[in-house]
Design a binder for these strands. Sequence first.
RNA 1: GGCGUGGUAGCUCAGCUGGUUAGAGCGUCGGAUUCAUAAUCCGGAGGUCGAGUGUUCAAGUCACUCUCACGCUACCA
Length: 715
Amino acid sequence: MDKNKKYLITSALPYANGALHLGHLSGAYLPADIYVRYLRLQGRDVAFICGSDEHGAAITIRAKKEGISPKDIIDKYHSLNKSTFEKLGISFDYYHRTSEKLHHETAQGIFKKLLEKGGELEEKTTEQYYDEEFKQFLADRYITGECPKCGHSEAYGDQCEKCGSTLSPTELVNPKSTLSGNTPILKKTKHWYFRLDKHADWLRDWIKNGMLDGKQHHDSKTWKKHVVGQCLSWLNDKEGLQPRSVTRDLDWGISVPVEGADGKVLYVWFDAPIGYISSTRQWALENGKNWEEYWKQGPDKLELVHFIGKDNIVFHCIIFPAMLKAHGEYALPMNVPANQFLNFEGRKFSKSKGWGIEQHEYLEEFKDFPNKEDALRWALIRNMPENRDSDFKWDEFVDHYDKDLADNLGNFINRVVVLTNSYFEGKVPAAAIADDEAAFIEKLKPVKKLANSVIDEIEKFNFRAAAAALMELSSWGNQYLQDAAPWAARKSDPDAEIIKESLFVSLQTVAALSILCEPFIPFTSLRIRQLLNLPKAKNGILELVEAKLKLGKPLIPVGHKIGKPAILFAKIHDRKDKSRLEIIERQKAKLEAVLAAEKANERPPIKPETTFDDFTKLDIRTGTVLTAEAVPKTKKLLKLTVDIGIETRTVVSGIAEHFKPEEVVGKKVLLLANLAPRKLRGVVSQGMVLMAEDAEGKLGFVSAGEAWGNGLTVR
RNA sequence: GGCGUGGUAGCUCAGCUGGUUAGAGCGUCGGAUUCAUAAUCCGGAGGUCGAGUGUUCAAGUCACUCUCACGCUACCA
């Protein structure tokens, strides 16, 4: 640990197209905040950087749909996300936005540098769809058409939301521009591609061994296994890294700073991570700092850490580093401690299904819940998806709050404050060990040890373990007080030394807790400090605490007058006051309502009207499955032979995840017999077996019944 | 299908380079205690370490096969 190092800590830039839920918070923002607050307590020079990612086609499409401007959308979510983070105590030094001029200049500057350097960007001309009426090229999301895979009539140019296939616009059947509704034409367009493929070798050495330019950059063992694993999986892929297009034909974004590139913008993935840089620049500008010290120094002078969710690993560990290295002047991240995903009561968060809770919703729903910010932070920390997916449950929220914060931490502090007030008029007692450094050190050894383990775990990005160590410290306090039992000593001798000593030690422990808990539960830290009548934990105080514990100096001096007892955490399970429990119960009831509603309806809407003529074009026949076998090297496909009376058909069907081959043999089915044959994985499929599908995607066979023969028509 | 990560007490998780009776917290059961928010403290019960095979004097820890979960990637009616 070098005190002279600069620390640049970033959290993933939220896309300004929606609100963030608890999973985002626990994945990328809360861990970063803990780390940053810790660094500040240690007196380190740190910049905590974030901002809104405001470009990309998704925003323009939504704007179009809702009849508003992209600016309306990004303004709305920029301010919502920014203010929500503030309320939850996420202590960004700067929360910028990529629509700012400074960002546009920064991104263009980097693009130009790469272009001038040569060899990093290459031009390629391809054919893309163009809307003649609107006179513009169409981004993938601006084109809809029939999905070639499932036939869904409103698939987008990049993917079909019905079957989840990844598509390219030219695959769509009957493509339509969402702008004019016309059929677009193919037209040539020029784009720039970043030669990612040229960077594979050094990236591999950097990720695997932590080596950069022949020098040790970081210790790769300190990176999370799933992070290194996924990167190497990419780097070792037999296809290898491919050049990636960095520009698009779009009117929303950062214009490509090249002559004759009108109507072209930087692809959002290229400009978004550069947002970290522009955000730092803006922060430096407003705070009299030199931004380059936070981006352009060697690993001995600067530590860059990206906090992200696992969906962003490849971007932050491969693509962005490659961009920075290609540019040549920027530092690469020292670590990218990506978290996995947080589920919510056993399922993925889903806005459309109403599953989960967004950050601002939580604040609203819990507005009458005292200390709601720390209650949430604590529950999320205790269950952070650090190495595997985890699950947020209200019952655990309650447990963590009551057991840890109220019973353990809160109650310990309360015991100490009450005893100090009733035995010593609220003053830190003059225990003999207060002036005896050796004895002090000996008595407070466990405090020092546990404080060190909190620190150690934070440094290793093990925030769950750090939080557990914090609880151990408060547990130790409870245990110590119980053993010392000043209330018992007082009965026989009111002046017994153990009474003074035990409270002196306990008060030192509370003082240590008030600081050590700050990264996790900052609002509570402040309240404990107030209870002790001490000022807010300020930057650098933790290194003083470490020094004092080492030298045997009190953290809170003899004679210091503390405040009156006050409850820090009112329990949720409280026999006198049900109000907090009611808030929780309301949340649980909401989830049950969602589940009930799902069971009740949840049927896809009726498709657009069709004609009898169209229907009669379909030749549907009754049939019986004769044989079934898995198609090799596929997960979903079964090769079936179906007897339809007049002949036997070979059909490839995507049902292998639902049925084993032997379960299918002998099934009565309906077969669409005049579907154009299509080759799938080398097998020609002559028809399609009709299936019913439920809301969870489960499939069921459809047939005319056991008694029916094969080859009969359906009408 | 390929790749990655994970599968350890009822629940949430620790277990570094293989080495004595596999750990913690919560829950549970029993006891102590009263300064305290039905809080605290002490003690007990509870695990064939996903399944199997192998390497080894010795495997939760290494290798192989299988299985389940999650993700990336390919393919997909």
